[in-house]
Structures are given as structure tokens and as C-alpha cells.
């Protein structure tokens, strides 16, 4: 078994309204920042032990499918790295 950290990033699908991101963008603009667009995402860092990277990714993928993301509104991606 090897120690991995799986990072699951959950973001709204393109085209789904993100009022919190819009509000954040407006606040940044009020502070004088210039920006084109702002998108927000949730990031989960999951430490787990697995036989290999593939298995770690598969398990993190299932976590995203079952709970971390809502397929109606979200896309997600999974990145796996060995953990020191």
C-alpha cells in the first residue's frame, strides 16, 4: 500500500449561475481590482492508502460521485499524488 493524497475539485457546470462568485467578483471590483471573470470551486484533499495511483483515483472518483459533487449542477476532477 502507498500513501496518496487525492484532490477532488468540484465546480459548477458551465452555464449554471453562480451568485456567490458574482458577488465575490463585484466585491473585488469595488476594491479596485480589474478582472474578466471569476469562478469558484470547492477543493477536497483526501489522504488515503491504496495499491496504486489508479486505485486511489478510482476511490476518490466514487466519493465525488456519491457525495462530494451533485451531478445535476457540478463537474469535478480528481488528481492523485503520492504523499510523503
Amino acid at each position: 500500500m502507498t500513501a496518496y493524497t487525492a484532490t477532488v475539485t468540484v465546480r459548477l457546470k458551465r452555464g449554471v449561475l453562480d451568485p456567490e462568485a458574482e458577488t465575490t467578483q463585484q466585491a473585488l471590483e469595488r476594491l479596485g481590482f480589474e478582472l474578466g471573470d471569476l469562478r469558484s470551486a470547492d477543493r477536497f484533499e483526501i489522504d488515503l492508502d491504496a495499491d496504486d495511483e489508479h486505485e486511489a483515483a478510482e476511490r476518490a472518483d466514487e466519493m465525488a460521485e456519491r457525495l462530494l459533487a451533485n451531478p445535476t449542477i457540478h463537474d469535478y476532477d480528481v488528481a492523485v499524488e503520492p504523499r510523503e
Binding site: P19, N70, T72
Partner: peptide
């Protein structure tokens, strides 16, 4: 039930 209820457009 299908769909999802998420953040109000007004935030």
C-alpha cells in the same frame, strides 16, 4: 425527485 435546489440568484 430530479434536479437540485441551489443558491438563490440573489445570493
Amino acid at each position: 425527485t430530479p434536479g437540485a435546489f441551489t443558491t438563490n440568484a440573489s445570493a
